[in-house]
Design a protein around this nucleic acid. Structure first.
Length: 677
DNA sequence: CTTAGGG
DNA sequence: CCCTAAG
């Protein structure tokens, strides 16, 4: 069965393109400051102008009247200068494109300029702590700095995986006068650029740069100060608590996103749930460069994919050999089914809502609560989510849920990786004239706001990232092959299953995850689903579709170092295991493996040992407490019997005459004697 | 590489 | 399932 499901997720932020180092001529109005970093690893230079830009734009447009003649930033410390020319700026100057589009460019630069130091080609990779300087785009353009700490690769799932979080606990703000004010930046997230705009090759080459995501957000009046850039020019009195606030961050969805409103300093939430993954990666990386370099992983993987030797057999489970998936993910036209979408409610009112008014200051006209209040020219939006184009994926029935997740993620990342713009839709129609003000566009009236939505669209249909894989010369030196996640689809079922005919005879097992599959007959998307294609098949991209997925499925997959997909033992497997243990006893898992699971590559002797462990446990607890596919009591009984027998045997060391083996079907072949078999 | 156990 | 300390 093919699973076709529209993937709808939320992207609550705008992507800020990475700006390559080097001459920056095209960029305007931005600045880069070199991070004064101590030799070691990382200093981050965070260039932020977008925030202000967003604010400005929205504000200016919102208040068409509010003529703020000058939106030009005033840079403090002379580091930044308003620049409109295309000249190359001093090294320390980063310019940011001042587009009118929502997409703003923030630039983050890792201390690439540890000039005196050796070049830090991999500096980025090892940034665990850094210094970040941000210039907010308020009228004063004051510099905000903070020592930040990046969380290491967070392998949870979804986007967060690619996010390095920079935390600026109780940040402070350095005013021009040198005073430090606290609480303007609460947190910043810097995503690794692995899948962002730049091509993989770029990723390798621009490792010292980070992407910064900025998302406008509604600020809770109470936490406002701490969680966002504060625009001084708009004192709370004149500027509603929210509206102009900008939140930096990247979230995958509401669930996972940590609301900035909350003061999350070292947010445990962001602690890599799966530190192991990271650890694993690190362990496998002989090259120090790979250390904590999520960004480079894909390169690394790519390499391995290109033919680098793989590790041991067992390890290869994670390798590409098994993942010759032909996964294909295509994106559908963004809107082709928007209207049809219902339950997911990606669009429409839910996407945009008026900002809560509570918490407003007393002096503030609380009445302004409604965006529509004439008194308040500001349009307050709370963008709960940004919709992305529909994704269609196809996976074989035997795919595991885990593989499905990865597949979806890959699809998503593929989209994001190619760069996206934000489209604005009003009542379902795309608002194309970007020069118009919100008022002119009718985005200022509440009624319309309910129908305002945003969507991601391709930055460039042409933009097709270069695959690192294809570039042998890339900096991604081959390092010790990292364990690659097994290909979900691929590896999961079929192949192995078919092979383990002796064990996996239970069809039920093969269908690990498709119960929830949704198949829509009407979809023409899936035209060819051959049993062999354990890949995702996507729908033909439409004209407006995003650039074709950058292929590097494999590479990307590589990025996902994660644990093997879970594969519950089937009854038949359990039976085989029990039988083998009855004969061989516990403690000889390798033999058990050889005897009963020889062809089940995905079952290692450790797995068998673990399974036995759980079986014993399962047999011990009450049936009500058992979970998963029920194991016949008969088998459990045998488990207990064998367990008791062999435990005893083991204890006795030599008890040949024990009640042992013989009682079970083990014949005279006593425990000591390894069954030759 | 295997085991044995804890996580 | 993962990870590791121990043979």
């Amino acid at each position: 069965m093919v699973l076709k499901k529209r993937v709808d997720y939320r992207f609550n932020g705008f992507r800020i393109p990475v700006i390559p180092k080097g001459p920056r001529s095209a960029r305007r109005r931005g600045h880069l400051k070199k991070a004064a970093e101590d030799g070691q690893a990382c200093a981050f230079e965070l260039l932020a102008s977008l925030a202000g830009q967003l604010l400005q734009e929205s504000e200016s447009s919102a208040c068409s009247n509010a003529s703020e003649g000058n939106h030009q930033p005033v840079f403090s410390q002379g580091v930044i200068e308003q620049d409109r020319q295309d000249e190359v700026k001093p090294l320390k100057t980063e310019e940011i494109h001042q587009g009118s589009s929502i997409e703003s460019t923030f630039k983050t630069e890792v201390a690439s300029q540890n000039s005196t130091q050796k070049p830090l080609p991999h500096a980025r990779a090892d940034c665990s702590v850094g210094h970040i300087s941000v210039y907010d785009n308020s009228d004063t353009w004051e510099k905000v700095e903070a020592n930040v700490k990046t969380e290491t690769f967070d392998w949870d799932n979804k986007f967060r995986n690619y996010t390095n979080r920079l935390e600026a606990p109780e940040n402070f703000r350095e005013s021009r006068d040198g005073k430090i004010k606290k609480g303007f930046i609460h947190e910043l997230e810097v995503g690794s650029s692995c899948f962002q705009g730049s091509a993989l090759a770029d990723k390798c080459g621009l490792k010292d740069q980070l992407d910064l995501y900025v998302s406008p957000t509604l600020i809770d009046s109470k936490s406002n100060v701490k969680s966002t850039f504060h625009r001084k020019s708009f004192p709370s009195s004149s500027f509603p608590k929210h509206g102009s606030s900008i939140k930096l961050g990247f979230r995958d969805d509401d669930e996972n996103f940590l609301r900035c409103e909350k003061v999350c300093t070292k947010s445990k939430a962001y602690r890599s749930p799966r530190r192991i993954a990271h650890r694993r990666i690190r362990n496998r990386m002989s090259s120090k460069y790979w250390k904590v370099a999520p960004k480079l992983k894909d390169c690394e993987l790519s390499r391995s994919d290109l033919g680098a030797p793989h590790y041991h057999k067992r390890k290869t489970y994670y390798g590409f050999e098994r993942s010759q998936h032909n996964s294909i993910v295509k994106r559908r036209k963004f809107f082709d089914r928007v209207s049809g979408v219902t339950s997911d409610g990606g669009f429409s009112s839910e996407s945009v809502s008026n900002s809560p008014q509570k918490g407003m200051d007393g002096d503030k006209p609380s009445s302004s609560a409604k965006l529509h209040i004439p008194k308040d020219p500001h349009v307050k939006l709370s963008i709960k989510s940004v919709r992305i184009p529909e994704l269609y994926v196809e996976v074989p029935e035997t795919a595991t849920v885990g593989s499905l997740k990865r597949t979806v993620m890959e699809a998503v990342m593929a989209i994001l990786g190619s760069g996206v713009h934000v489209g604005v839709l009003l009542q379902g129609k795309k608002v194309r004239d970007e020069s118009r003000t919100l008022v002119q566009s009718g985005i200022s009236c509440k009624e319309n706001l309910d129908n305002l939505s945003f969507m991601l669209e391709p930055v460039s249909l042409q933009a097709s990232p270069t695959l690192c894989v294809a570039d042998p010369s890339s900096q991604c030196e081959t390092s010790e092959p990292t364990r690659v996640p097994e290909t979900p689809v691929l590896d999961s079922g079929m192949t192995d299953t078919l092979r383990d005919t002796s064990l996996l005879t239970n069809p039920g097992n093969l269908i690990e995850s498709n119960h929830e599959s949704i198949s829509s007959p009407t979809d023409t998307i899936v035209d060819k689903v051959t049993p062999d294609s354990r890949a995702l098949v996507a729908v033909p991209a439409s004209a407006e579709a995003l650039a074709v997925v950058p292929v590097s499925q494999k590479s990307k997959r590589a990025e996902f170092v994660q644990r093997r997909t879970r594969r519950p033992f089937s009854v038949s497997e359990v039976e085989a295991l029990v039988h083998a243990v009855e004969e061989l006893g516990t403690g000889r898992w390798r033999d058990v493996k050889l005897r009963a699971f020889e062809n089940a590559d995905h079952r290692t002797y450790v797995d068998l040992k673990d399974k036995w462990k759980t079986l014993v446990h399962t047999a011990t607890i009450s049936p009500q407490q058992r979970r998963g596919e029920p194991v016949p009591q008969e088998l459990l009984d045998r488990v207990l019997a064998a367990h008791a027998l062999w435990s005893q045997h083991q204890t006795k060391q030599h008890g040949k005459h024990q009640a042992g083996p013989g009682a079970l079907k083990i014949s005279e072949t006593s425990a000591e004697r390894p069954c030759v078999c």
